[in-house]
Amino acid sequence: MTPISRGFRGRRDASADPSRVPPGQYVTGDFPVLSAGPTPHTQLADWSFAIQGEVDEPRTWTWDEFRALPSENLTTDIHCVTKWSKLDTVWTGASVDTLLDGVDTSAEYVTAWSDGGYTTNLPLEDLTGGRAWVAFAYDDEPLDPEHGGPARLLVPHLYFWKSAKWVRGLELKLEDEPGFWETYGYHNYGDPWREQRYWGD
């Protein structure tokens, strides 16, 4: 039985479709920034993207090679574990399916790693099947460093910390290994619809 907060009425956002807002989230029009440390500023000339780990042959792309890959535009809702959700965000990126095309692996897990040392872990199947991208543009503009530019992972069906900013590679793994926030008390999988915010949720 949930106790009533005396005098609390709440400010319901009538414009937001409740079926698109996961439990405990509120809709914001802003794009808040949350990062554990300073924002890395990697020059494009020094940037590369790698698929490595449990693969026959690791792959890398320079920035130009990466940008020459087929890209997709998508409009999607994003959900941050700090409670905000942002609806109809517009991104451009390369599908992870494209990056993994032809890769032969027995891996079931992935650690995404980033400039600045950030990591996050996901099941491989959550990155495939048209559910994940390496995004380089937001609202048709190059992605700001504060928001993860030059490129970030975009996995909108999980809490947004899984969408690693400043991503530089995917390491395919046989065993699941908790990433940065997953080690510091946050849920290993992070499904917003099941409100998997913290360990044990």
């Binding site: 802003d30 808040p32 440390g37 905000w84």
Partner: peptide
Amino acid sequence: EATANALVELGHEPARIRTERFGPTG
């Protein structure tokens, strides 16, 4: 953002700088 960037420019190690940000909303 400004403080952390300035500290990195001054030569502080990024890995020794921990940040917590609150945005315009919240």
